[in-house]
Amino acid sequence: MQATNYIKYKVRLKVFEGPLDLLLYLVRKDELDINNIPISKITHQYLEYLKFIQSMDIELAGEYIYMAALLLSIKTKSLIPQKVKDSKSIDEIDSEELSRLLIEYRRFKQVGEKLRILLDKEKIRYPVRNVITPTEVKVSVPIEFIVLMKVAWNLLKRQDRITLESIEEEIDIRSKMDEIDKFIESKKRIKFIDLFLENQITRINFVSTFFALLELIRLGNIIVRQSRPFSEVWVYVRKNLRQA
């Protein structure tokens, strides 16, 4: 509720940050004394401005209306001679209080302007960067590996390339890594599923390919990426980080 109010208001009166900002503008425009604001004059101008805004069929934020009411009440009170100065209720303010509010607001506005200047100056200052930091070498595993294994398994199975017979064979992970490495090296990037080179893949072959892949990722030699869900999974070479 508050948030939407804020957004609406921003659209409504872009030029002014609020009723105080508008009043400050009116004071400055007519070179009025901020310590001794001619309340009748400022109220008139304020209301004129609100009328103008409303004539453009723009809805006014509550704060502006509230300030209009405050101004009118100050004006009314200044017209009626008061016999006794009774204690003020919370919402009651006089023109002195209004001056105080405006002066305080103006000061913060000035600080803001000073900050803006600093910000603009700082925008074109460049720290000397530490380009190479130890944290640079990050393992990039964007997709769940188990999921990837399952998908690959099912796909190969559908292609009828999985051999479920248990064949006793020994596969060296390191030579598998070399194999993958060389294969990708020549292509820069390959589809993940093309990592399985053989026509018939045994279970141990399947698993060792994954192990090799994980190890290569850990070493930072390759990256596995999928740009969006259901799209192709690619394996890339990380050239610049390759170990000699």
């Binding site: 300030m67 506005k109 900050l115």
Partner: peptide, 30 residues
């Protein structure tokens, strides 16, 4: 508005939202 609110926070810190709202005369939630 961000700069304005930042200026108030910078000078009056630690400061509550209601103090900021009062200084600016508008709701500063945004």
């Amino acid at each position: 508005s961000m700069i304005e609110v930042a200026a108030i926070v910078a000078i009056k810190q630690p400061v509550t939202k209601s103090v900021i709202d009062k200084v600016r005369g508008v709701n500063s939630v945004g």
